[in-house]
Amino acid sequence: MLLEYAIVAGLLFGVFYAYLALGLNLIFGVLRIVNLAHGDLVMLGSYLAFELYYAWHWSPLLAIVVAVVPCILVGGALYLGVAPRLARAQDPEMMSLVLFFGISQVIEAIAAFGFTSNERSVSANALGSHPVGILGQAYPVTWVVVAAASVPVLLILFAYLGRTRLGRATRAVMASPDEAAAVGINVRMVSALTFGVGVALAVGAGSLAVFMLGGVTPTEGVSITILSFAVIVVGGLGNPLGTVVGGLVLGLAFQLTLTFLPNWASLVPYVLLLAVVLTRPTGVLSRARRLA
């Protein structure tokens, strides 16, 4: 019974983890940079949900939708602003890492100014009040609603990548920016758009993170970035579909450890990350499988 519970909980969390990490992976896939400010964007999304719920009495889930347009605009503009300078740097990959590290520090500081460093949480009642029965056991309604909200986001993104012209262009850039440019795709605009979408995904996931990861504080960004990085490393860097696999693996591993070895549960993302990175260094670096 405990095993069943842990498996279902792991799947519910897994879907959420996939959503949480998707923006990071999308940006990596197209731009080859790790957005170290990813966790901080998630944190901002949590505050957005908090404000929507308490100041405007809207459902926190609306943050997912509300965030899309402003994030794409801000993210895209940021990308267009810094990309040329990064491209000229001696070691663009390392410089982008340091750059986003700096941005992450700035976001954290500004969030601490704006929201104070006190932890805030959104009442679970915001998503419903009765536990949901699955296979004869009762699960917190927050878990179920969050998973249910994550699935359509994932589906929409995959439909975008698979079925629209822009999405196909995005995948072409992922595969090879040079070839994409050769067939007339505006790589710069696609990259800027993708960066914006990645930011929007991170902020949107933040509205759910406040329920799944406990309350929100300005300093939580780093641990969310590591968690998300673990998800995309396990699932395959630069592979959006792999993110779902990574999320589910991490969700199951975490919940099973929490059930049977609770002391060691917080080690799970780190150990998984290290294990994958060290045992398949080439597999991680190559992009063997790609969204079909």
Binding site: V82, R85, V98, Q105
Partner: peptide, 20 residues
């Protein structure tokens, strides 16, 4: 400390962009 964090965050960004 937030001011300091803001200062060095901005410094890092400026350093990367203008003075690597």
């Amino acid at each position: 400390p937030q001011y300091f964090q803001l200062i060095y965050g901005v410094l890092i960004v400026l350093l990367v962009l203008f003075l690597p």
